[in-house]
């Protein structure tokens, strides 16, 4: 059993976030598909050739993993791991600089009563708040992630999406959380989605040649079927996404365990095929420590322990952090804690 120390999180990854893209997605896609020109029909054949997903079997497997009983030392490990995997998020029309600074402060000192508490992996904001967040986080290893590409609907012209991305990068974003065009996906325009992702990935390259890591939000709640989730996962990986991410948090259902399980199968099989790892980020709807631990069990048993690392697995969440902190306090002091003993930097406006 290892415990996670703040010093080794995030950076304890096989490659760091500043490396340039090592592959040309289109060229690699041609190789993997065995075609000389990447066409929509070639992509369709490939994606539709993936094994189907049986809904009942998949949900049964997820429910089974959900019954794992994680106690004592393994629970302590899981709580710290989960905290270090959080993309602490605020994505509201009502966001202000003050709100974002509060969130950053929370990320820097999640539990002032216990300095051994790990920090989340990143703070996730809209593009216009990137600079504020970056400034508030200073030179801490906590990343700033920005949603981009006309988040959450993705309904804008490509130049707008690319400008959105570049602006966030220019403002200092370490990570970009883009949304795919679900309409294009559902209408069968896989090549359109592929190009969109590939172009955004290109836009993630900074002037100095380094690049921000790209999370591809598939908005699985709008894709509806698990077959679609699997296809969208593979399409996103093929197009050069560094992460596949479930949801914007604006559509219900957001991150469910079965959807995440399918995505974990996808990254596992993608590594078998290409030798490369892709991260997974369930986002939205994960509010309790109990839920978070189920996800970690699923990561461990489906994709394997290599993904049990903040570099490869993230939770898109806000209220989850405080529940984890309450559990952490409970384990430390041996008594149940209460909400007055954790700081709340994002109470409801209403």
């Amino acid at each position: 059993m290892k415990s996670i120390s703040p010093a080794v999180r995030v950076v304890a990854a096989p490659s760091d976030s500043t490396s340039a893209p090592s592959v040309d997605p289109t060229g690699r896609a041609r190789d993997l598909l065995g075609v000389s020109r990447l066409t929509n029909s070639a992509l369709t054949s490939w994606l539709h050739g993936l094994p189907g997903v049986d809904q009942v079997g998949c949900e049964g497997r997820a429910a089974g993993l959900g019954t794992r009983s994680i106690k004592t030392t393994s629970k302590a490990f899981a709580i710290d791991m989960a905290i270090s995997m959080i993309d602490l998020t605020t994505l509201e029309g009502a966001d202000t600089a003050g709100k974002v600074r509060g969130l950053a402060a929370k990320a820097l000192h999640p539990d002032p009563s216990d300095p051994s508490t790990p920090s989340p992996a990143a703070v996730c904001v809209y593009g216009d708040m990137v600079a504020t967040a970056r400034a508030a986080l200073g030179d801490s290893p906590i990343n700033v992630a920005a949603v981009a590409t006309a988040f959450p609907s993705g309904r804008a012209l490509m130049p707008v999406k690319l400008a959105d991305t570049r602006d966030a990068i220019a403002a200092g974003a370490d990570e970009i959380d883009m949304v795919i065009d679900r309409g294009a996906f559902l209408s069968g325009d896989y090549l359109g989605v592929f190009r969109e992702i590939a172009q955004v990935a290109e836009a993630c390259v900074r002037e100095d040649g380094s690049r921000a890591r790209l999370k591809v939000i598939m908005e699985t709640g709008e894709l509806v079927t698990y077959d679609n989730v699997r296809r969208a996962s593979w399409l996103s990986m093929l197009a050069g996404g560094d992460f596949i991410k479930t949801s914007t948090g604006k559509v219900s259902p957001a991150a469910t365990l079965p959807v995440t399980l399918i995505m974990l199968e996808a990254v596992r099989d993608w590594r078998d095929l290409t030798g490369e790892m892709v991260g997974v980020k369930p986002a939205g709807g994960i509010r309790t420590s109990k839920d978070a631990i189920k996800f970690l069990v699923t990561v461990s048993e489906i994709a394997g322990d290599d993904w049990l690392d903040p570099f490869w697995f993230r939770f898109g969440a806000s209220s989850l952090l405080n529940d984890l902190l309450l559990q952490r306090q409970r384990m430390r002091i041996g008594a149940y804690s209460g909400p007055d003993y954790v700081t709340d930097d994002s109470p409801s406006l209403y």
């Binding site: 009983s69 994680i70 106690k71 393994s74 899981a78 791991m81 069990v297 461990s300 322990d305």
Partner: peptide, 10 residues
């Protein structure tokens, strides 16, 4: 050794 060991839960 696995990273995520499950403690006994009898």
């Amino acid at each position: 050794m696995a990273k995520f060991e499950y403690a006994p839960a009898p």
